[in-house]
Amino acid sequence: MAKAWPVPGLRPRARFRDAAGRIIITRWREMMSYRDGTLAGEDIEELHAMRVSSRRLRAAMDAFEDAFPRKPYQRLVRQVKEITDVLGDARDLDVTIENLQSVRGSLDDAAQPGIDGLIDRFRVERTAENPIIAALFERIEVEDFGPRLEAFIAKHTGIVASELDPRPADGG
């Protein structure tokens, strides 16, 4: 599983609001770092890493909800939830297909057509997820979601994303 990015400047005695800004911005940037790999669709681990990051982001947004005005914040949370859900649907199918492939060898010959039929069915469903993922990320871009989220966080926590500039632990 992809490691969580370290949160720049997060100190044990931080104010709740300050920690909220630093953690949410870091998790947002971490999640979006997997966007291109996920859209390319060549390695299922990219989508997996993005899903894991999106769950970290959601958890952080839930944890720090008291640092923000409720209504506009909930709109942002709903958008992040949609990302998590869409990625989750695709990831669940990837895992199901992998599980079926691994269980296939342990079942007798009579069971093989049934397992193959299921794998085919889930592959079709998985392929159908790709345009849904692409459309979601296009909408995020068209609607300027990233800049809006970062501006909102800066306004209520004082943490500016470009100054925080979070990076993965290995600097890559």
Binding site: A110, P113, G114
Partner: peptide, 12 residues
Amino acid sequence: GRGDERPGVHAL
């Protein structure tokens, strides 16, 4: 065209 798929689903 791959034969009866039901035994596999029952097994699963």
